[in-house]
């Protein structure tokens, strides 16, 4: 997957647990786990907005683009 979610690092920086974020954002822990483990296929703007609001960060702080294809092409 080329888009990855780095929720752990931001949570660590803010000293917040996944359970606390779940309660504040109103998203179940199961769904946050899906997001954290990279199994999510999409994220709603409303969810992203709520997470950014609670963590006081920008979407770019938690979403990263890994250009795997380019890395593979460069290696070849």
């Amino acid at each position: 997957m080329t888009i990855s979610v780095k929720l752990d690092r931001v949570l660590l920086d803010r000293g917040m647990s996944l359970t606390e974020l779940s309660e504040r954002v109103g998203v179940t822990i199961a769904n946050l786990s899906i997001l954290k483990t990279g199994k999510a296929k999409a994220i709603r703007f409303s969810t992203l907005e709520a997470i950014c609001k609670e963590l006081n960060c920008q979407p770019g702080d938690i979403l990263f683009f890994d250009d795997d294809d380019a890395a593979v092409e460069a290696a070849e």
């Binding site: 998203v27 769904n31 946050l32 999510a40 296929k41 999409a42 709603r44 969810t47």
Partner: peptide, 8 residues
């Protein structure tokens, strides 16, 4: 449905 279930 799979996509819907994996949309957070």
């Amino acid at each position: 449905k799979e996509e819907q279930d994996l949309t957070v």
